[in-house]
Design a protein around this nucleic acid. Sequence first.
RNA 1: GCCGCCAUCGUCUAGUGGUUAGGACACGAGGUUUUCAACCUUGUAACAGGGGUUCGAUUCCCCUUGGCGGUACCA
Length: 419
Amino acid sequence: MNKTGKITQVGKNGPYIQSERLKIYHKHVDKLVKDGYAYHCFCSKQRLEELRQIQEANKQTTGYDGTCRDIPLAEARKRVAAGESYVIRMKMPKTGTTKFTDLVRGEVEFTNELIDDQVILKTDGFPTYHLAVVVDDHLMGITHAIRAEEWLPSTPKHIELYKMFGWKSPEFAHLSLLVNEQRQKLSKRHGDVSVQDFIDKGYLPEAMINFIAFLGWNPGDERELFSLDELIKEFDFSKISKAAGVFNLEKLNWFNREYLKRLSDDDLVERCKLLLMEHGQWNTRQYDMKKVLNLEKERVITLRELVEAVGFVFEEISYDAEILVWKKSTKEEAKDGLGKLADYLNKISVRDWTKAGLESKVGEWMQKNSLGIGNVMWPMRVALSGQKNSPGPYEIAEVLGKEEALKRLRTAIVKLLNC
RNA sequence: GCCGCCAUCGUCUAGUGGUUAGGACACGAGGUUUUCAACCUUGUAACAGGGGUUCGAUUCCCCUUGGCGGUACCA
């Protein structure tokens, strides 16, 4: 895909757009018809519909009844020339079974008689998937058809088509479905979300890949964190599980947090860039983005949550004065402590204004003056963040810088005076 | 209905003819902690049921049950 979202040609077996391959499909269908492996079917949709209803009413296997199967080719051609509309169906053998070895399921066998004469070319001249997949895969040199389990029942049709063309069929591997909490196949119709939705929410691609890969595969030992390269290196069909996997959001969240934690500062900033721009917080020179993002990195699940969580750094904070008071403390103590703290902090040089510097200096100062959690630590943290729950006071102070931190402390003191 | 696939903790799974059935997520408890997270310790929790085969089955076979998928001029 290019920047405008248009699919561009990459391989050397193109064209890759179905409408541009119509001639190819027609050529192959013609061959099948000529060889007696496919036939024109003139049955109307209406007749087919009625047929199915009757079959259902009689509890029979539904499927095409073969009405047009034995129309001589010459006659069929005449009817086509006369303008009758038609489709082309493949002529499934009526006897025997189709057996194949699936790379994940092992031997699978289907009774041919029960398999429908599948439409391979529609009235509008387009192929159905069944024809297209076989023709394309062969022409494009596909060696392994790896697809979801929902295709397993139509595989005999594909194998039969390969035989009709005289081609070698690829290896088949039918992967178990990914299902939702209700254990149904994941689909938009059930309100399930797409990969793009997760990316938009700020899930990391590598976490998604790791998570999904482990839904149905694992290395056989207890390792869980795998990069794409490692997955490729260790992958083995025999280790794919056959049961459907439930898409478990909790586990994805865990993976995402693990990957988030491991991101380098630079990488983290880069990945949050777009999100920060959305919030109008990208071009603020005032703060060091690496430090800002590190503030909340270990407390959130997604990048979007991260950016939202650090909002308090950039925005004017508003909060209830009451939360400045620690649960085991009083308003007076908070006010008093905050006042003393502001005076003390004012004397600290900008050079010492780091998390570690503040921690040791303020710690020492508190000890000397018998101050602590209730009158300093808690109110300070709330004054800086405006939140009951937040990162620690010293790290926020460092990020905000001396000037902004002191401003927020003074605001808090005023708030306490007025309530 | 018919055809097919599948079946170990709630979830993802490891595992073997004889194991205290292991791990991870989630959950519970305790610890650490100025809050929330994080972190550490720890706990609860599974072989769907019934028949075989076998000295012995969670493991191999059959049946049942259950779940899912397919049954289109969709993919």
